[in-house]
Design a binder for these strands. Structure first.
Length: 550
RNA sequence: GCACCCGUAGCUCAGUGGAUUAGAGUGUCUGGCUUCGAACCAGAAGGUCGCAGGUUCGAAUCCUGCCGGGUGUACCA
């Protein structure tokens, strides 16, 4: 509906002044009206007229053409046009209409990428939650979305873990089978930390780990292979469990670094002298030619490095889905690196220049200091889940697991995409204020009212909102344009902020205005119903369940 | 060195060209449950929007310089 109003303004401006402008309707201070626009100020220079002159011309036309849907159309200095919306619009608008920023596009997006042989920490969860939510936004925008994941099943981290695990087993595979399923995650994370520490402290062990790392590429040793396979399987089983707990949708396809390695290695070797060059017996891509930097794809020892694998992965996704857009979510530190990879991919004609997109997240930091998985100083996601569970249990013994997901997801999504997240433990498990549970609670309250309401007659068309109702109705009216913005910019926090403000608006209304048994019951029920639907819709896009009770 | 990001209330953050008086949460202080669900609501206190210029009718927001912090920059992933 907001789009229609904007279009009306633009039509008038085109007819009267014969120009096109960017026009936005801004929420204005209630004393001026519901919305305002500064378009007269913008046009003043272009047209060589005073803002007031222009505004008055527009206002005259608006009064003629808006069919009483816009009311209280006024001018205010230095050049704003203010207006209110007729209550009919607020009563009857459909706030849930889809947008189509990505319609008819095939999209591949990596929605998680934790490595096996290491435990999943909050940083991985941030990546996964953002990936999953962006995928939801892309779907809402009409895209044909394929969720995939990518995991490092080869390399030094595997060598480190395998060193500790093999030492622990001491040749006895049964020791693995004796571990309880619940202890596996903890075990794996301990093994990694141990191997990592030993790697740094002893040259001798470092050499052993390098050997074990090489074995992860070949998997020729039978005992090694058995241990490796079991632990890798455990890692992915744990990953599936935790991702489900976080409310993320499953991936369609899981890519492994071992596959990407082969194809990437091949592509690089086939294009030496064209896209890649040899330098000091390494094979590199000269990014400097494109205002980037040089990245080594194959080391001087002939090993296909991370860059070659990323390239291989892009090729694999291309073969499988032939996407129009391909999204990769990484932390900010990899921003420039991926520009190089994408450039190489483009020069190889694997992808087009506007196809690959790297969305950057910030880092998750502990308020007590930087996280480091090498030092074992990480916030394990399972630990965080336990903490949140404990906090929820203080309120209610029978809480739903989806509440945990809602609390954690919202915490990770509410800040600006790309900013670092400082994790204060107390704050991160808080259930009050601007949190997931606040929104979920506000939904449950609304549904509770609706559940108790007896069937009512439809609302009289001529009925008008009173101020208290109108505030909530006006906030609901914003939903469509907020969602448009969140999808267009792929920024979940825009939706978070809005839903929080909306729920605040509802809670205020709820505290001060009786719904059931009120003489205004029918119009208020309609309003509460709209509110609950919008909130549920918005929460679902964030991957958060909207409970009817909690 | 070069490139990119950041600096807003004690703390964690929204706001990135529009409204006399810059907003939330949290923390501190105060009030509200025999009343649709108090994981809530109402109120108080708390800010030279890092600093200095500039552009503009209008700047936390854009430009320039400076200060402070972070990240990246050839064989780790």
């Amino acid at each position: 509906m907001k789009t229609e109003i904007t279009d009306l303004f633009l039509k008038i401006i085109r007819d009267k002044f014969n120009v096109d402008v960017n026009l936005e309707l801004l929420k204005s201070d209630p004393k001026y009206g519901d919305f305002s626009t500064n378009v007269a100020l913008k046009l003043a220079n272009v047209l060589g007229k005073t803002p007031e002159e222009i505004a008055n011309t527009i206002i005259l036309e608006l009064e003629k053409l808006s069919q009483n849907l816009l009311t209280n159309i006024t001018f205010s200095a230095p050049g704003f046009i203010n207006f209110k919306l007729a209550d009919e619009i607020l009563l009857n608008d459909n706030y849930l209409s889809k947008n189509n920023f990505f319609s008819n596009q095939t999209i591949v997006i990596e929605t998680n990428n934790p490595n096996p042989f290491k435990s999943m920490h909050v940083g991985h969860a941030l990546n996964a939650v953002i990936g999953d939510t962006i995928a939801n936004l892309l779907e809402f925008g009409g895209g044909k979305v394929h969720r995939v994941s990518y995991h490092g099943d080869i390399g030094t981290h595997v060598g480190k873990s395998m060193w500790s695990i093999l030492k622990y087993l001491d040749g006895d595979l049964d020791k693995l089978n004796q571990l309880k399923p619940d202890d596996r995650n903890n075990f794996m994370s301990r093994m990694y930390a141990e191997g990592s520490k030993a790697y740094d402290e002893s040259e001798e062990i470092k050499a052993e780990i390098i050997e074990l790392t090489k074995k992860s590429y070949k998997l020729e040793d039978d005992f090694y292979y058995q241990v490796y396979s079991i632990c890798k399987k455990w890692s992915f089983e744990d990953l599936d469990i935790i991702l489900e707990k976080l409310g993320s949708k499953p991936v369609e396809k899981r890519y492994l670094e071992s596959e990407a390695y082969k194809i990437g290695f091949k592509i690089v070797n086939e294009n030496i002298g064209r896209v890649f060059t040899k330098s000091d017996s390494a094979i590199i891509f000269r990014g400097e030619d494109y205002h980037l930097f040089t990245v080594v794809f194959i080391s001087s020892t002939g090993n296909g490095l991370y860059a070659a694998r990323d390239l291989g992965l892009i090729k694999l996704k291309e073969n499988d889905f032939a996407p129009d857009k391909s999204y990769i979510i990484t932390d900010n530190g990899q921003k420039d690196y991926f520009k190089v990879i994408f450039k190489a991919s483009e020069l190889l004609n694997i992808t087009t220049s506007d196809e690959t997109i790297n969305i950057n997240t910030g880092l998750v930091k502990l308020s007590t200091g930087k996280m480091s998985s090498r030092e074992g100083k990480v916030l394990d996601i399972n630990w965080l889940v336990d903490q949140v569970s404990g906090k929820l249990a203080e309120h209610n013994e029978n809480f739903d697991n989806k509440l945990i997901a809602g609390a954690i997801r919202y915490q990770l999504l509410k800040v600006k995409l790309g900013g670092d997240i400082v994790f204060d433990i107390d704050q991160s498990v808080s259930l009050q204020g601007n949190t997931g549970p606040y929104l979920m609670y506000a939904h449950a309250r609304a549904r509770s009212i609706l559940g108790k309401a007896v069937q009512t007659n439809s609302v009289d068309e001529k009925v008008k909102y009173i101020d208290a109702e109108r505030g909530l109705a006006l906030k609901l009216f914003d939903y469509e344009s907020i969602l448009n913005q969140a999808v267009a910019e792929l920024k979940p926090n825009i939706a978070c902020n809005y839903l929080y403000e909306l729920s605040q608006e509802f809670n205020q209304f709820y505290e001060h205005n009786k719904v059931l048994g009120s003489e205004r019951q029918s119009i208020r029920l309609k309003l509460v119903n709209k509110y609950a639907d919008v909130l549920r819709h918005g929460l679902n896009i964030l991957g958060i369940f909207a409970p009817d009770k909690m």
